[in-house]
Design a protein around this nucleic acid. Structure first.
Lengths: 199, 199
DNA sequence: TACAAAAATACAATAATAGTATCATTGTTG
DNA sequence: CAACAATGATACTATTATTGTATTTTTGTA
């Protein structure tokens, strides 16, 4: 589904993304967004019911783009190791794309509703990813006895992992930690572990 | 003058710098700083009367370090063009060091007092720099008919330049603009413009 | 002109923040 | 151990910021 936005609305969207990305959700005020977008507050509330709904839209857009890229990788006629590598760099991209500031608010805030929204979205996205995985598995891209559901389990527990102080100080930044986890799982599911790229 | 700080105080100072640098002055709350520094609010107010006084301390420290580096460059036994180049990269360093977020609040806020403080400090620093320049000039490092006071004049007007919308859109970011101005003036005061490094 | 979109402004209710006061806890030093 | 200083925890008030809305102008445009 492609939603067409008019000029003002997309100005608000991109200003929102920019500011949220930089400062996180809480620190950014609606007024600030309006100033950056060059519109009045009324216009803002014409297009978005809340500050929250804008954040959702921003997040949605980002995830949708990431999903699209993921699909492209999965659909392409490349061997598993190349797929894995592409996914890996995609993952690290999107980790850099979705700023740590944004994620910080999302992990610590309990009341804003952002958390629930992102959790829900994450679930949906992961079930899509899993079905894509299964499809690729059918085509023999990954080894047959690997269960994609495992990824879901991990992803659902990853937020607790990310908040674990010990792990955090071990890796420095949440991104590093996420990357490490991703790397581990990605490389662990190749059909042929010892010799990659040998069809 | 070297001020010795105890552990907590320096923890507050560095947490403050980190947060101010990232988010600017306004967006950062005292509670946030205390959490980052691992101390209670009481301890904060034991060492700093204000949020503002912490910001001043942070800025002070940064400027003093920059000044020190500048002095080192001026005192060294190197030809003018090397001095200029070193100062140039120092300038671009400190532009990156003093974050645009911090400067943004400083240029837009009118009431907090940060503006006045920084303006005052800037004046002092520049007069020191000028006397250093004159000394180097005496030693024949720069051409004799160049007036260091010109730099002061420029620096005092630079804030209006930086806020000029036309110039800003011409250079994209304030840093770029500052760098361009600096570059222009630095290269313009070499004793021998056509052939640098030819003693 | 007439109409719709946007801006400007003002506003009330709510939430966040600064800074203080009080009391409890720790840690250190003689 | 006792006494003292440094720090923490908590609660609190006054002030400021922010949200989201209502109302009135301005602007652009068919």
């Amino acid at each position: 589904m492609v939603t067409i936005l008019n000029k003002k609305q997309s100005a608000i969207l991109s200003s929102g993304r920019e500011l949220f990305w930089k400062y996180g959700f809480r620190k950014v005020s609606v007024d600030e967004i309006c100033n950056a977008a060059g519109c009045s507050k009324m216009t803002f509330y014409r297009y978005y019911t809340d500050k929250l709904s804008l954040a959702k839209a921003v997040y949605d857009e980002e995830v949708d783009q990431a999903i699209q890229k993921f699909r492209d990788i999965m659909q392409a006629e490349t061997p598993a190791d190349e797929k894995l590598q592409a996914m890996l760099s995609l993952k690290s991209d999107s980790v850099n794309n979705i700023s740590p500031e944004f994620l910080k608010d999302f992990y610590s805030d309990n009341d804003s509703g952002l958390k629930e929204f992102i959790a829900e979205k994450t679930t949906k996205v992961w079930s899509e990813i899993i079905s894509d995985f299964k499809e690729a598995q059918q085509r023999g891209v990954f080894r047959q006895d690997f269960k994609p559901e495992l990824l879901l389990y991990v992803s659902q527990n990853i937020s607790t992992l990310i908040n674990d102080p010990y792990l955090l100080q071990l890796y420095g930044t949440p991104q590093e930690l996420i990357m490490e986890i991703t790397r581990f799982f990605t490389y662990g599911i190749a059909p042929n572990n010892s010799k990659m790229s040998s069809k």
